[in-house]
């Protein structure tokens, strides 16, 4: 089956007064139909820029480099005219963000805003029909008393409720792809749990593919089928969900997994943080971007960028230590058992 979305060698830079910030430096991945793909990374890893490029939502200072390609349903989106993008946005691909307050118009009742989304793409729907559809959607995303809530303004809603309104709006036209950029980061765990369960149900019901962007590995474990780990504008590792937790194959992924305490963490054992901080993307490191923080880094790592190589079924990673000719000494976590 053809993937619904295929991104090839995406490179995005921002022109700033401090020079060119290379936010995304050659990212390729695809999303299958009905799949939930997680993109994990810290701030500045390029995960949001990647997702914003899909719907042409980048700031004016952004430049998508030549040779980049984003194909949705076999249609090239890079360079697509604004009119075509407006047809796609909200109809075929929709997006929800971290802060639902800034995504909603504070002066328009929420019901009307969701109805607008329907009528924008289906002008033949009458106002009454649109309202009926919105109330159904509200029910679906579990907004209590939909009839009453229809006329409320965003400020009358809690953060969790606003995010439900956003999800209702995003799903109004039954899109083929939903991009969710940290949609639960600003919410309480109880509300996050409710929203995650809902996304999973909606994915099952509509068969919508989801790209879920987050920094929280726990959320990824709960929701996603497959994960991409980004760092320094590059994909460092890509694997099916269970693989990434059971056999992480990049020192950065291992570092991330080690630095979060799980519920059963032994208190007498110190946490193992990743030392240092993420790289400055105005002047990205020549070699592997993680090399300055990597406990296993060698000379080569700082000088050259390793290839993204396959290490298992559907599992790829970008690390010299995984090369067939890598030295199998005590400083290689992937060869220690050999």
């Amino acid at each position: 089956m053809e993937p619904i979305l295929k991104i090839d060698n995406l490179k995005v830079s921002f022109m700033t007064s401090n020079g060119e910030v290379q936010a995304v430096r050659g990212v390729s991945f695809s999303v299958e139909k009905g799949e939930i793909l997680g993109i994990v990374g810290e701030s500045g890893s390029g995960k949001s820029v990647t997702s914003m490029s899909i719907l042409h939502l980048l700031a004016d200072t952004a430049r998508i480099k030549e040779g980049s390609s984003i194909r949705f349903d076999e249609e090239e989106l890079i360079g697509a005219p604004g009119k075509r993008m407006r047809e796609i946005r909200g109809e075929k691909i929709s997006m929800i963000f971290q802060d639902p307050m800034s995504s909603l118009n504070p002066l328009i009742p929420v019901g009307k805003q969701v109805a607008e989304m329907l009528r924008e793409h289906h002008p033949d729907i009458s106002k009454e029909e649109a309202k009926k559809a919105v109330l159904e959607l509200f029910e679906k995303v579990r907004i209590p008393e939909p009839e009453k809530r229809f006329k409320c303004y965003p400020h009358e809603f809690s953060g969790g409720m606003r995010q439900r309104v956003m999800i209702a709006m995003a799903l109004a036209n039954k899109p083929e792809l939903l991009i969710a950029d940290e949609p639960t980061t600003a919410l309480d765990v109880t509300i996050q749990d409710q929203i995650l369960r809902q996304l999973r149900e909606l994915e099952k019901e509509y068969g919508t593919s989801i790209i879920f962007i987050t920094h929280d590995l726990g959320v990824v474990a709960e929701l996603c089928d497959r994960v991409i780990v980004m760092y320094g504008g590059l994909i460092m590792e890509e694997a099916p969900i269970e693989e990434i937790f059971e056999h992480p194959s990049h020192p950065y992924t291992m570092g991330l997994l080690n630095s979060i305490p799980d519920m059963e963490q032994d208190k007498s054992v110190r946490l193992k943080p990743i030392p240092g901080s993420p790289p400055d993307m105005t002047n990205p490191p020549a070699g592997c971007p993680f090399a300055p923080r990597c406990p296993y880094a060698r000379k080569l790592c700082g000088a050259e960028l390793p290839e993204f190589i396959e290490v298992g079924e559907g599992h790829s990673s970008r690390c010299f230590l995984l090369y067939p000719d890598a030295p199998a000494d005590e400083n290689n976590p992937f060869r220690s058992e050999v």
Binding site: V189, Q192, D193, L217, A221, E222, M263
Partner: peptide, 19 residues
């Protein structure tokens, strides 16, 4: 029960008591 568990197998097996 609402805390996401960073372990896909456990996360999908558990009987969740959520609010």
């Amino acid at each position: 029960g609402s805390v996401p568990i960073a372990n896909p197998k456990l996360a999908r097996q558990k009987e969740k008591s959520s609010i």
